[in-house]
Design a protein around this nucleic acid. Structure first.
Length: 393
DNA sequence: CTCTCCCGCCAGCTT
DNA sequence: AAGCTGGCGGGAGAG
């Protein structure tokens, strides 16, 4: 085990030193690695089990990522322990769908997450949550009341899911004129006027989860509206941002800043738990060990697959500073690819791992192609946007 | 201190 | 019954 962990973390006697780093274990980074692992042509079906093993994480984490990525069209879930990889080309379509739904007012911003643990009373607000089967069930059930508690529970559960939250979070952007939404506003809009602070806290946690993942695939970036007011900026594919909209946070990209929630030095998120655990602790020591070993065998260095479509990206909440300087109008208006490349180049050294740099350049290509696709012929209904805009910020 | 968000428990669902 | 999913919130690292 120790062999697959950074050596400075564990000494010869197996005692862990104080080197736990959250940054190396972030969902975003994991997502990045996930994408780098599977974003290639030869990949069709993904076993979640396998993914967990190869990435060296609990399967629980894979679920999180898969649920989010499925909503942006990178992959689709199909059945137990499996999903199929679609790739970046799937993003435009998924965004279109979300936008369309948003326009039709489905799962709108009016607090669809309003707390509702008890009854069926607010069921109708869940009816159209974008899941056809579920919607159908609900519709029929509604018309044939009395309403089944089980279905109600199911709907509640679904309505609170990471996936649904992801969808609605994205819809916020897609239906807004501005492209930056404060965390506050997002929470308010997504959760409705709940007074329950703990419920709010929970959902904000989820928002962070989602934001990390979306950041890692460059759909959004984290930014700041003002001091201590975190916000997210849509980088997607709308290409309608004016330079003047840009939230200007001129940050000189000092190395320190750049390291903020960005790159792990490892390709994997393997292994170490928070330091409250010592080597003897943990429920599944064997499991962890096995993962580590597996990682060594499997290290998903991109052998020499067809050198084109494969990709890689940097981590979550990535280059905040640099992004500020490049990711405004140019990026959005379609001539940004060049900028992305420059950006990428400037970050390349952050990867100690050579395989990663390699993957990284592949990723650029993938990005390039999906971006081109995404910006092509895309018409955002400004009208509707204006309506919604008022709600934001 | 507050913000961020990893982590894994465990309820509910599926096979 | 066993295994799979994923909501949830405690609590720790980062700022």
């Amino acid at each position: 085990m120790s062999s697959s962990c950074p050596s400075h973390l564990v000494d010869a006697s197996g005692v862990r030193h104080h080197a736990y780093s959250r940054k190396q274990k972030s969902l975003g980074l994991l997502c990045t690695n996930f994408v780098s692992l599977y974003n290639r042509e030869s990949v069709e079906s993904i076993s979640l089990d396998d993914a967990a093993r190869r990435l060296g994480v609990e399967r629980r984490r894979i679920y999180d990522i898969v649920n989010i990525l499925a909503k942006v069209g990178l992959l689709s879930k199909n059945g137990k322990n499996a999903c199929s990889w679609i790739g970046f080309s799937g993003i435009p379509k998924a965004l279109e769908r979300l936008e369309e739904e948003a326009r039709r007012g489905i799962s709108c911003h009016k607090g669809i997450y309003a707390k509702d643990d008890s009854d069926d009373e607010s069921l109708d607000q869940y009816v159209d949550d974008g899941d056809e089967r579920l919607s159908q069930t609900v519709s029929t059930t509604l018309s044939t009341a009395p309403f089944d508690k089980k279905i109600s529970a199911k709907i509640n559960r679904r309505a609170k899911s990471l996936g649904t939250l992801t969808e609605n979070f994205i819809k916020l952007f897609l239906t807004s004129d501005g492209d930056t939404i404060s965390l506050d506003a997002a929470a308010r809009l997504l959760l409705g006027a709940t007074t329950d602070a703990s419920y709010m806290r929970t959902k904000v946690r989820r928002l962070y989860d989602i934001a990390n993942v979306l950041s890692s695939i460059f759909l959004i970036e984290k930014t700041q509206l003002e001091a201590r007011k975190p916000a997210f900026r849509w980088l997607g594919a709308k290409g309608k941002m004016e330079p003047s909209d840009a939230v200007t946070v001129a940050i000189s990209p000092s190395p320190k800043k750049l390291n903020k929630r960005t790159f792990g030095t490892e390709l994997t998120n393997v292994g170490l738990k928070r330091n409250k655990l010592n080597s003897a602790e943990g429920k599944k020591p064997m499991d962890v060990k096995m993962r580590s070993e597996n990682l060594q065998e499997h290290s998903f260095i991109p052998q020499q697959q067809s050198a084109s479509k494969n990709g890689y990206s940097f981590g979550p909440f990535h280059p905040v500073g640099v992004m500020k300087q490049t990711a405004n109008s140019e990026v959005k208006s379609g001539k940004g690819i060049q900028q992305w490349e420059n950006l990428a180049a400037s970050f390349r050294p952050m990867y100690q791992n050579q395989a990663l740099s390699e993957l990284f350049s592949h990723y650029l290509e993938a990005w390039d192609s999906w971006y081109a696709e995404a910006t092509k012929g895309r018409n955002v209904q400004q009208q509707f946007n204006k309506l919604v805009k008022k709600e934001l910020l």
